[in-house]
Amino acid sequence: MNKAQQSMAEIVKETYQTVGLPLLDDPKIRVRNANVFYADKQAIFDVNLDIGKNQVISMIGPSGCGKSTFLRCLNRMNDTIDICRVEGDLLLEDEDMYDKKIDVVELRARVGMVFQKPNPFPKSIYENVAYGARIHGLTDNKVQLDELVETSLIRCGLWKEVKDRLNEPATGLSGGQQQRLCIARAIAVNPEVILMDEPCSALDPIATATVEELIHELSENFTICIVTHSMQQAARVSQRTAYFHLGKLIEVNDTSQVFTNPEHQLTEAYITGRIG
């Protein structure tokens, strides 16, 4: 850690209180006093944040600031890491996600996820999209399933490109197509929230633009949380932006507000490129 970063850490330590507008009325997801630990090391400190219905919220911040960790808390993907421990209240529509009575499979059906690297299953394109419907028993027969696959692919703008090769391996698609397929796979089970962990970082600019457009369209029907390294992307796709720093939520506000008139000096430092 260099001197500048050290002094930043001091600032965070001394004045930690999220600035901006972290809380909303009638949110989709309500997070209160969330703390996340990896073994003894704390990764997330006292985060309070509301995520609005059918909104896109982007999470930005320097590497290792905990934004991905926070995102993975929202559908309990951190459960798969043995040493990870989550404390605090995380509510999805006023239901505690970490309640013992909640079935994690059910939760993940409601909160879908798209990952950094496109990760289609090594099966056919059709099987990839149909998988969620199959395991959750959503369709009654083949005709319905076909319809569901087609609808999902159309919504992701992938139908025209793949309709003649649904039975070919998904791994044969280009990176951008694969990522859109992953999004199609996620929306095929009609989740309420979609979490996206740097969905465009492995894609070229054209594929990125397509995916961004898709995110924009999907925000009409889904609540979307997107972690991104690109501030331009955050500015383009999201209504709200949350800035994380060293595991702390520094500032949350409307995206235009954050990028044009940041309240906190750390946010300003980050968006002007002085830290990152």
């Binding site: 993907m77 798969t80 993940r108 879908g112 990952f115 299953f121 395991i135 992953c182 796979r185």
Partner: peptide, 9 residues
């Protein structure tokens, strides 16, 4: 692959 499947529920 595991993450993808788990993420799908």
């Amino acid at each position: 692959i595991r993450e993808a499947a788990l993420g799908m529920g």
